[in-house]
């Protein structure tokens, strides 16, 4: 991939009032690539998505850039007027959310909702009949068995998986440069979840769409992503190829997360010799009360006094490791 990445977050910070919620996040996604942004509640992963979409109600981008390279050239979304942002959303930037029921209009038939998107974002389809054909074709692409029937249905008449397929069809109606998927499979059953993840991957590949896949679910990340970035308390702690991050995490936080997964291999004897999971004691610090130095330091099993020292500007950034990986941990820097 020689062209510029579709999305580059460059030292992005977001503030809500006095609280810094996102603190110097840098990442990039290439054309056709899927990046899983993994984080627990309060990590700032959804705020990252909202910042890219320009939907930070009550919050502001307090530093850094959000560079999107699409059909309209390169633009900094952090500085784009709302009028232009509105034109991008649903067109060059598509979105899918956890709960399609809240994104779909319950009083409108599915067909009318897809036609609305096509009218807005596909000026090349000049006639209503062309748009209707395209709507049916999109639904067929997402694996809906009987598109004409789905087009006539109201959202409540479809299953959760079907509704998510409709959302995916709408998201891809204008071949978006960037897809933001925020926990799109969390509310689905295991079987449906696997099929929807495969569908997102296939659609993104065929449209060359860069995907920012926001999740707390390692299984979903493993199924869909090429690379992973781990966010904790508003800072990026690690990123790299998905297999490397999940199989041999570099940062102590990622290691703790992976060891917490309900996997029989992760069971280990406790002090009384009973088989227990790892878990991570402590809680995620809230934005106003984040510690000095490394944000994970108060919960870190290998923290040293130096980890709590106030950081110099820019020193919270990720440092390169072998294998295209990066991590923000003092312990990794001093290792040979």
């Amino acid at each position: 991939m020689t062209s510029a990445p579709v999305l580059v977050l460059d030292d992005l910070s977001v503030r809500f009032g006095a609280a810094t919620v996102l603190d110097g996040v840098s990442l990039h996604i290439a054309r056709g690539e899927t990046l899983a942004l993994i984080g627990e509640s309060g990590s700032g992963k959804s705020v990252t998505a909202l910042a890219v979409m320009g939907l930070l109600r009550g919050g502001t981008v307090s530093g850094g850039r959000i560079m999107l390279t699409g059909r309209g050239g390169q633009r900094d979304l952090a500085r784009l007027p709302e009028r232009e942002m509105r034109r991008l959303r649903g067109g060059e930037i598509a979105m899918i959310f956890q709960e399609p029921m809240s994104a779909l209009n319950p009083l409108m038939r599915i067909g009318a909702q897809i036609l609305e998107s096509l009218t807005l974002h596909r000026p090349d389809l000049r006639t209503p009949s062309r748009r209707r054909e395209e709507a049916a074709a999109l639904l067929a692409q997402t694996g809906i068995a009987d598109p004409p029937r789905a087009l006539r249905a109201f959202p409540h008449e479809l299953s959760g998986g079907m509704r998510q397929r409709v959302m995916i069809a709408m998201a891809f109606c204008a071949s978006p440069a960037l897809l933001i998927a925020d926990e799109p499979t969390t509310a689905l059953d295991a079987a449906t979840r696997g099929r929807i993840l495969a569908l997102i991957r296939a659609m993104a590949a065929s449209h060359g769409t860069a995907t920012l896949f926001i999740t707390h679910d390692f299984g979903a990340a493993a199924a869909v992503a090429d690379r992973a970035a781990v966010l904790y308390a508003g800072r990026l702690l690690e990123d790299g190829p998905i297999a490397a991050v999940l199989d041999s995490p570099a940062h102590p936080y990622t290691q703790g997360l992976i060891a917490s997964l309900p996997d029989p291999a992760a069971l280990h004897p406790d002090e009384r010799g009973r088989r227990r999971l790892h878990g991570m004691p402590g809680t995620v610090p809230t934005p106003g009360r984040r510690p000095e130095g490394c944000v994970f330091q108060p919960r870190c099993p290998i923290a040293r006094p130096a980890c709590a020292a106030p950081m110099q500007p820019g020193s919270g950034a990720l440092r390169p490791l072998p294998g295209g990986r990066r991590a923000a941990c003092l312990a990794l820097e001093t290792a040979p």
């Binding site: 627990e40 509640s41 707390h216 390692f218 703790g256 917490s260 009973r274 227990r276 878990g279 004691p281």
Partner: peptide, 18 residues
């Protein structure tokens, strides 16, 4: 629950059983 928290709650349920 987040996985790190879920792990500790699952441990607690196993402790209560045992």
């Amino acid at each position: 629950l987040d996985v790190s928290v879920q792990a500790l709650v699952l441990n607690l349920l196993m402790d209560l059983r045992d």
